[in-house]
Amino acid sequence: MSSYEYIAADLTETGKLAAGLASLFGPGTVLALDGDLGAGKTAFSQAVARSLGVSDVVNSPTFTIIKEYEGAELPFYHMDVYRLSADEADELGLDDYFYGEGVTLIEWASLVEELLPPERLSVYIEHGGGDSRRFRLTPAGEPYSQWCMQLKENGLLR
């Protein structure tokens, strides 16, 4: 699988990546998000939500597991599976979200990898020093591969 890279110097540039991706989203979009504690998963999730037109405050759903928001055109489903076992996650009926009408973003997705749909966009975030972050995007299947190639052609990804 090919991977693509994006370096964000600050939260504004993180927002540019989120906006570029969100412009391509459709029903059933799945973003599998991972990274160390404090790497910026929730900040990226908030930027995605803003790009989707979510007007509510978006914070980490660590204890509620799943939060649903109305976007301008698509619902946004924000999940944090950090405190779940794969068996517990399986009981939540995640497929209803993955194959539903909205955009699903899962923080700590690697913890439930066996439950994720085969087609998705995996995003790994690393600290880059100060406010900078390095994003590694790995598409699995269509349309995610096409999106990443398009964003690379447009100069957003490398």
Rank of each mutant, 00 (worst) to 15 (best):
G35D: 10
M149Y: 13
E13W: 02
A47I: 11
G38S: 02
L115G: 00
Y69S: 11
H78G: 07
Q146V: 10
I66Q: 00
R158L: 13
A9L: 12
D36T: 11
A109F: 08
P75R: 08
D95T: 14
G40Q: 11
G20A: 11
F98D: 10
D80T: 10
I106M: 09
A89C: 11
N59K: 14
D56N: 10
F63M: 02
I66W: 01
Q46D: 04
G40H: 11
S51A: 15
V30T: 00
S110F: 11
D131P: 05
L105V: 01
G15H: 07
Y97N: 08
P61A: 01
V54P: 02
S85D: 02
E5Q: 14
T62W: 03
L137A: 06
G40V: 12
L156T: 08
K152I: 04
G28A: 10
L151R: 04
A47V: 11
Q46C: 01
R158W: 09
E107Q: 00
A22S: 15
G26Y: 04
E119Q: 14
P75E: 10
P139G: 03
L37G: 05
Q146C: 09
D87Q: 13
E91H: 11
L33K: 03
P143I: 12
L105Q: 07
L115F: 09
G15L: 11
L21P: 01
V81H: 07
V57S: 13
S60Q: 09
S122L: 12
D10Q: 07
A72L: 10
L11D: 14
F63V: 01
